[in-house]
Design a protein around this nucleic acid. Sequence first.
DNA 1: GGTTGATATGTTATACTGTTACGCTTATCA
DNA 2: TGATAAGCGTAACAGTATAACATATCAACC
Lengths: 159, 159
Amino acid sequence: MTANGFHQHDHAACIETVLGTVEQACAEEGLQLTPVRRRTLELLLAEHRAMGAYEVLDRLRDEGLGSQPPVAYRALDFLTKHGFAHRIERLNAFIACAHPGERHAPCFLICRACNAVAEAPGRPVAEALRAAAAPLGFVTERVAIEAEGLCPACAVGKP
Amino acid sequence: MTANGFHQHDHAACIETVLGTVEQACAEEGLQLTPVRRRTLELLLAEHRAMGAYEVLDRLRDEGLGSQPPVAYRALDFLTKHGFAHRIERLNAFIACAHPGERHAPCFLICRACNAVAEAPGRPVAEALRAAAAPLGFVTERVAIEAEGLCPACAVGKP
DNA sequence: GGTTGATATGTTATACTGTTACGCTTATCA
DNA sequence: TGATAAGCGTAACAGTATAACATATCAACC
Ligand SMILES: [Zn+2]
Ligand SMILES: [Zn+2]
Ligand SMILES: [Zn+2]
Ligand SMILES: [Zn+2]
């Protein structure tokens, strides 16, 4: 998928592509994409922005798929653990991965005006971070790289 | 200050240096380093790790400096707003700035074993992030760059 | 002196985010 | 088929953060 959350694109196709990739990955790795997990992923995929766990839970509850926080957190844990979703630390919220399957160091751009979130190529940034950490003797295991600002649409004419 | 939280150093001097710098900065910029704010900074400075707002609040309460959450959050907001402390998004916690006064793009190394947090030179990382964001038309305003792993002390012999 | 406005603090209540614990059901596999 | 593991339902609770409003302090001004 080359689309990103900041630009117009065939979003239905965008969703289908990701869902198909995730289904295939689950089949290959023997992971159970249960109804709750699948629906949670669909909810995240529906919009290119991060959703809070309780926002997800509200939707799941409306659909009779679970009513208590652990239901949502378990599904989100599953998705993030296997790289099908990411947690945005700055927002305490979650977003569907735009490139499931590809091994990638995620790096997120958060629009403070419209709340859209896009993934940017993060490899060079993560490498720079590792390089900055190494001289201190720090062994980097995971990175969280997030930028806050304005997406192209919101940047025009806004302060 | 060249000391970082991962290595032995004269910590008393380390605290004094930062406090002095912050006092001077406040005097120059007309900022009020009130008792609550000053004490909050001292609490953060006491350890090279991030403290939660409620942990700060507990200490303040013990000392009769405030008993309700907003007291701690206001002090922490003041400190972070003016660059005297930083928020660690991944931990929902706060740490004293190791280089107050210097304009720097912070970049944090979090030890998952001992909870120590060190600042690493973040300029190259922030630049890499901006460079990754620009092609998408994103206007970067703030960055949060955090690495989780093991500090030198905890890395020896631990899995 | 008294008024005004700006800044900081005190306090209550509430909203939002996340986890523990326990019991039940379902999938998996020998 | 029976054992084991994985997933789900639910209740209770723990941790993080803010809204809203009252009070205090202090300097500038009349
Ligand atoms: Zn899309
Ligand atoms: Zn936007
Ligand atoms: Zn020190
Ligand atoms: Zn450590």
